[in-house]
Design a protein around this nucleic acid. Structure first.
Lengths: 122, 122
DNA sequence: GTACAATACATAAGAAAATTATGTATCATT
DNA sequence: AATGATACATAATTTTCTTATGTATTGTAC
């Protein structure tokens, strides 16, 4: 039996999100100066009405890769006894963030065009 | 030295296209009734001003997967001595095509919103 | 007439990026 | 005391793509 709530609870198939994660993270960091991992997952979930849910297995390796390539810097803080690792864009990261966002925006225009095409059948 | 032509010759980083290939193919087949592999690569290249180039290594395995899952049917024809394999959407494929296209369109709206967000810095 | 580019298929090895699963630990709520 | 939320991390596996390779035909430029 199909619940009517299914309509409200649509989550994008994971393959769609592939390739955009790094850009999403860079953009959030560009907007928010510094964020920690868990905060990023919650922010994305909130901003997308739960349609994009970043898993930890995807998030942390990506953050570490961004750090390794020098696009972000980190500061660790303790909230009580619990550790929190804040990420901020480096100068290179800021540039990269802009480039990645522009590229994705351009790509989406192209895809929109592709998807809007009307049937060409004879 | 940087050629001014670089500006005209931008090709999307391959990671961006990840996850959208199946949808692109289904959409083209929905619009064109039947197409063969090579034709699909050329059509996408043409429609996107060469910004999206589908490689054969990505295309054929995807087409075979679509066939295996019953979303497309095939007919093989000979043009002279050269073989050509035409792909058409099955009934299930037509439904899937619509669903995938809607999902991608929706996803892009969400991404557009994410990327358009203005700085929240204090 | 021959070399090269384009057409047209296919597959295999390897890389990249995600999923799924697991682990540790703290803090808040019931 | 148990559960769910917060917060990090990593390993094994899977998916999906890139890169490379292979075969063969057809058109075109020299």
């Amino acid at each position: 039996m199909r619940s009517p709530f299914n309509l409200l609870k649509m989550i994008y198939s994971s393959e769609l999100i592939k390739g955009t994660l790094k850009t999403i993270i860079l953009k959030l960091l560009a907007d928010n100066k510094r964020m920690y991992g868990y905060e990023i997952t919650q922010k994305v979930k909130e901003l997308t009405s739960e349609k994009i849910q970043i898993t930890e297995g995807a998030l942390y390796p990506t953050l570490h890769a961004l750090e390794d390539s020098g696009l972000v810097t980190t500061e660790t803080e303790y909230i009580g006894k619990r550790v929190r690792k804040y990420y901020s864009l480096s100068q290179t990261g800021k540039t990269q963030a802009q480039e990645k966002v522009s590229e994705l925006a351009d790509f989406m225009e192209t895809m929109k065009f592709l998807l809007d095409l009307k049937p060409q059948q004879i």
